[in-house]
């Protein structure tokens, strides 16, 4: 692999891993919140955060 390809792969893995993990955390919180019937109250907040993380 060339230097540039390595850098791209390395940064790519980092960002994908962090984005996946953040999304998982937020979605899980949202899921359990709904299950418990407290998600609805603050739903809009959760959604904002979801969109904020998945992009990164």
């Amino acid at each position: 692999m060339s230097e540039v390809a390595t850098v791209v792969v390395g940064w790519g893995i980092t960002f994908v891993a962090l984005a996946t993990y953040s999304t998982w955390v937020v979605l899980r919180g949202k899921g359990i919140g709904q299950e418990l019937g407290i998600g609805e109250i603050e739903q809009s907040d959760v959604e904002k955060d979801t969109s904020a993380t998945t992009d990164s």
Binding site: G29, K30, G33, L36, I38, G39, I41, E42, D45, V46, K48, D49
Partner: peptide
């Protein structure tokens, strides 16, 4: 309190 649970 439940309201503190999600994003603030």
């Amino acid at each position: 309190s439940a309201a503190k649970m999600t994003a603030t």
